[in-house]
């Protein structure tokens, strides 16, 4: 009984460690400035929206929000379409040297993203895409890991179903759309959610490829807000931070099962 009690204390302690910073963020974002700069700290905020309007005034957060949304939606759509089409081709179609091509796709996972920053910046500059949505989105829509996950999943589907579709005269694209994808819904959702989270959180690429406030995304805008406001405006900064986090926290709460499923599947397959 005593060990059980200790185990519960540890469990609560762990929850506190991970919730504490998030509560600190949430409460500060809604605190009045005088409450933020007092010691000992106020644990409960006198609710105010003031920090949010200050953040809005300090930086064009509506624009950041719009940019982040555009990049996440379009970037995710293109990347997932790429993954699905590539995976279908590798799972169901014949092609000479297919195996080598598949390794070429997977090999992209061995190239660390950080190593590609400078050359990709120069390539995007040559294309005239600096500070454009194309420059923000296109370099990231190649898909290796998601393609791998989708293909492995397609190969587990019973052949009878795709065969039946073909006998009924369905072409490949129709089979993909009407038969294979509906049967792959959980995996598809996993891939979409994981990709969207990555796109939304992406930091270093938007940082280097954009150079005006109107093209910044939320995470980059946050860095600029923090550097400009400094230590005197934690309320404003925490309000901005909450704007960056809230959509992903929401998605996490809704689609947690899929994210966790996808991540453990990726790990345990190895």
């Amino acid at each position: 009984m005593k060990t059980r009690a200790i185990q519960y204390v540890v469990l609560i302690g762990v929850a506190a460690v991970f919730l504490g910073p998030l509560y600190w963020l949430l409460s500060t974002a809604f605190k009045q400035p005088t409450q933020i700069y007092q010691w000992p700290p106020a644990w409960w905020p006198h609710l105010t929206w003031e920090n949010f309007s200050l953040a809005w005034k300090a930086a064009p957060f509506d624009r950041f929000f719009l940019n982040s949304t555009i990049i996440t939606v379009i970037g995710t759509a293109l990347k997932v379409v790429n993954a699905v089409l590539t995976a279908y081709a590798f799972a169901y179609l014949r092609f000479p040297f297919k195996k080598i091509l598949f390794f070429a796709v997977l090999g992209a996972m061995m190239v660390p993203g950080h190593v590609t920053l400078l050359p990709n910046y120069l390539t995007v500059a040559t294309l005239g895409w600096i500070n454009t949505y194309a420059g923000l989105i296109i370099p990231g829509i190649g898909s290796a890991f998601a393609t791998f996950l989708m293909r492995q999943h397609f190969l587990t589907l019973p052949t009878e179903v795709t065969d039946a579709a073909a006998v009924d005269g369905a072409g490949h694209l129709r089979t993909l759309w009407r038969v294979v994808l509906p049967m792959s819904r959980p995996m598809l959702i996993t891939v979409v959610v994981i990709t969207a989270v990555e796109e939304w959180n992406n930091f270093v690429w938007p940082l280097i490829v954009t150079n005006t406030a109107s093209m910044r995304t939320l995470p980059v805008g946050l860095l600029i807000l923090k550097d400009e406001e400094g230590l005197a405006a934690w309320g404003t900064i925490m309000a901005g931070t909450l704007l960056v986090l809230a959509p992903m926290l929401l998605i996490f709460l809704i689609a947690q099962r899929y994210i966790v499923g996808g991540i453990t599947a990726g790990a345990l397959k190895g």
Partner: peptide
Amino acid sequence: ILSGAAVATI
């Protein structure tokens, strides 16, 4: 799954 930039700011 949270933005590294936002976590760092907190």
